[in-house]
Design a protein around this nucleic acid. Sequence first.
DNA 1: TTAAAACATGTAATTTATTACACGTTTTAA
DNA 2: TTAAAACGTGTAATAAATTACATGTTTTAA
Lengths: 183, 183
Amino acid sequence: MAQKNKLQFIILGLLNQQPLTGYDLTKAFDTEIGEFWQAQHSQIYPQLKRLEDQGYITHEITISGAKLEKKLYHITATGTALLSSWISDGTPDLTATKDEFILKLYFIQNNRDPRLPGMLQEQLALHTGKLAHLKQRLTTVFPTKASQTENYGHFLILQHALGRETYYVDWLKQTLQQISKKR
Amino acid sequence: MAQKNKLQFIILGLLNQQPLTGYDLTKAFDTEIGEFWQAQHSQIYPQLKRLEDQGYITHEITISGAKLEKKLYHITATGTALLSSWISDGTPDLTATKDEFILKLYFIQNNRDPRLPGMLQEQLALHTGKLAHLKQRLTTVFPTKASQTENYGHFLILQHALGRETYYVDWLKQTLQQISKKR
DNA sequence: TTAAAACATGTAATTTATTACACGTTTTAA
DNA sequence: TTAAAACGTGTAATAAATTACATGTTTTAA
């Protein structure tokens, strides 16, 4: 057991779709995959080197402009195999979400705590924004039924994230109402 | 900004309720707070030392049995102040949930992928179990309206976690239905 | 034409988290 | 009575993640 270092699998998964540079991969964490996983370039470049040393990926150098060298990484056959085995393996660990707001809430003992309304309102604003963002993403990335069928997994998780945020917003609203009654 | 090292605040928050030993704190992460945050004793003991060096907590030694020394930690006035300021500070960062299953799903492109039903079913079993566990917790920890009013924050987050899991389970069921139609 | 933004790749230092090592005491149940 | 489980406190090694340091090229817009 003890399956860690998920970054390597994310890189393999992305390279399985198309060859990319380290920079491209870094950008992917700012957009697409960044909705639900983070990594910085300082993590990505060394990981690419390791994956190449292990034979899961290779790179070719392309020249952009006059002399800027880009390393375009490709997945190898063993890389594809490793990716497949990771996906096929069970995923029995439900990682608890480390939500700082939830953590703070734990230490609020009194339901008349004067900080509570402000805290809830701040989160409501944040999650409402996130929800709007996700709605936007879903309609721009998956405008048609056909687009949903290709990249079905991506569609599913965006849909899932949307539902989760909808619930979060509803819960915040409901909780705000509840505490307003108690004041 | 860049407010990190949440463990120190969790420790302060717990010590703010009552004096505890390092061992007690460790146990708290297996039960109560463990629902939504993790830490091992190897993290806790050094953190206790640092908090004490900084004057946020102190300890007194009690003897259990013949010679077993326990360090019972107390929060200090500056510790209470630090805890309060952390809670009062804004919480503007929505940390993305690092859910390995969701990550794997991202790399499933085809909605007829033969691995999909099994993956969804595994998660359904896990989240159904978690949901049952949370329901159980909610009724045992907060059996009465009065118990909900004290430790209101804890009640809220358990209720929130319950709602979140309910949604997760519903989404999994719905997705399983959807893919069964497409086969 | 020139400055800023974006592209591109790396390493170093620090912090945080996990797993393993290490040791001893007290309580509980067979 | 004795062995196992729970109590109790630490350190070491490793792994992972974040922030900072470091450098250069190409494109774009003023």
